[in-house]
Write a protein that binds this DNA or RNA. Sequence first.
DNA 1: CGCCGTTTGTGAGCCGCGCCACAGCGCGCT
DNA 2: AGCGCGCTGTGGCGCGGCTCACAAACGGCG
Lengths: 236, 236
Amino acid sequence: MTAIRINFDKDLVLAGHFLLKHLEREERHRLATAARLSHHARGAMIFQKGDPGDSMMAVIRGRVKICCHSMDGKELVLSIINKGGLFGEIALLDGEPRTADAVALEETDLLVLDRSQLMPVLTARPDLAFRIISVLCQRLRQTSEHLEDTLFLEAPSRFARALKRLGDAFGKPGPEGLRLDIKLSQQQLGCLVGVSRESVNKLLNEWQRAGVIEMDAGYIVIRDTGALDDIADSCG
Amino acid sequence: MTAIRINFDKDLVLAGHFLLKHLEREERHRLATAARLSHHARGAMIFQKGDPGDSMMAVIRGRVKICCHSMDGKELVLSIINKGGLFGEIALLDGEPRTADAVALEETDLLVLDRSQLMPVLTARPDLAFRIISVLCQRLRQTSEHLEDTLFLEAPSRFARALKRLGDAFGKPGPEGLRLDIKLSQQQLGCLVGVSRESVNKLLNEWQRAGVIEMDAGYIVIRDTGALDDIADSCG
DNA sequence: CGCCGTTTGTGAGCCGCGCCACAGCGCGCT
DNA sequence: AGCGCGCTGTGGCGCGGCTCACAAACGGCG
């Protein structure tokens, strides 16, 4: 009974997923039964840099941060994956070890697809392969841009851009402005951009005083998108 | 007569290329006749960030630098493509504008493959698609690592790593050590890592005094790989 | 050969920002 | 209520590395 329900859920999830929705019902069902669900508590490590990895995950519920650490313990958050998102494709596709850690930011359910299940479908369906290729290209553009920002821009611009990106990914329009529907400590915000927690604090307060943003119950609300754009593009 | 010779050359080039050598002779020949050659003088711009791009290039002769510029004129060199290498795949694959500039570092010949020619082959031959996917994964790993280095490491470590990478790509073993078979100004070296020319100069001289490297006729020779590794991995 | 644009070598000064120290604060847990 | 922990707010110090400024070497070219 529960087994049936779970399978039903998996079918549904795949049918709604941007990558897999275009498959034949037949194929999708085969994938759905083969895929396994996995649950992770808030803060749990899903995989770790260097692990052998031959699976990728789709986020069904919750959020996952992709990050890595320096030798002296600093953290860099490469991206945060929302419900509906995908991560871990790279190791699946090229068979090399994982390049970063994946950590559940909240109670999280994942659908895990193994290389052995996915590869046949990928060779049989070139359109799916192209979709994967697009995802990779997008990631590449994204990390290149991150690199450029890091090398070219000062802390304020970098952080403003990070807020804009967060706005795109997690923003809910509200009466006061764009509300970021995710709770991140100043520490975490700093790790997104490679800036110290203290600097984040100062910028946040400065911008709040200037009316660019507002803090509400620990959530950030972007009040003046234009001003934020100006900071993001200022100088270089 | 010349036309025949050029076609012959193109066939040969494709047959020797790591991506395309596994195709049927038939298919490869079709690609070869469709592909066009293009020549670029030293310093010529091949394409520019933001250009629409639906082709990728294989380097037949010479070298190409992939770079981008900040608003205030700083340059970042993302990578240097050797003879036999490939670039411009991303725009071809996802149809978006080019993400960076491509500039010929020397007299350079390219083989240009258009999207319209390549796509049919890609859908027909899943193994080729996988090869492309591997290339993308590799690029992604490379830029991620570049980003990590930039955020986690100080200038000396970063620059040491850059020298090691250059050694892998352009190193010719010689009596004195690993000789970098490429001439780059200190300016260019700086752009590879995001460090000012002056800093590069100081590091270069310091390491030369320490016997880690040696300058010979404008070329860098790595004499003590171990010492360079130590600098690359020191602290964070 | 002499001129000029480019590359190299080096020192002084400055500044952004990381690191440290510490003080309030909220929140969960017992 | 009381304790402790992780988060926030702020100020000061120090340092890495960028900027600026200039001198010297090094081609390439008329």
